[in-house]
């Protein structure tokens, strides 16, 4: 089964690896990739890491991209422009709970739009 992929972007790599741990306790098969911290492992976000994470998470059913703070969203937008894909969506939702909901919804085999709508409805 092909699932909608999920990308978790944060200024801190610890934050998203922790979040991934929480989600993986329940959801095992949905592709989830993290892009935390800068290339140097410092606080911040990296366009390159985001592009790589989106590529990896995309198994053909699109990707939903979550972020923590404003500047992470800007880098996500830059990444999207570079990839130039219409099967990737950035979502403005709470990172922890939003990603959790998305993982569960994706696990049910829903489409990108349906997963997106389900998260937006929740918050």
């Amino acid at each position: 089964m092909k699932y909608v992929g999920i990308v978790l972007i944060s200024h801190s790599s610890k934050l998203v690896s922790g979040l991934l741990e929480i989600i993986r306790q329940v959801i095992h098969d949905v592709p989830i990739e993290v892009a935390g911290g800068t290339d140097e492992g410092e606080i911040g976000t990296s366009v390159e890491k985001i592009v790589t994470a989106i590529d990896r998470a995309n198994v053909g059913n699109g990707v939903l991209v979550f972020y923590d703070l404003g500047s992470a969203m800007m880098n996500a937008e830059v990444a999207l422009e570079m990839i130039d894909s219409n099967t990737v969506k950035i979502i403005n939702a709470p990172l922890v709970e939003g990603a959790y909901v998305a993982a569960v919804e994706s696990n049910m085999g829903k489409s990108l739009q349906d997963v997106y709508d389900a998260v937006m409805k929740e918050f």
Partner: peptide, 14 residues
């Protein structure tokens, strides 16, 4: 874009 890290990266880069 690739080296600034903070919000200034995507902004100045753009």
């Amino acid at each position: 874009l690739s080296k600034v890290g903070g919000a200034s990266g995507p902004l100045y880069g753009t």
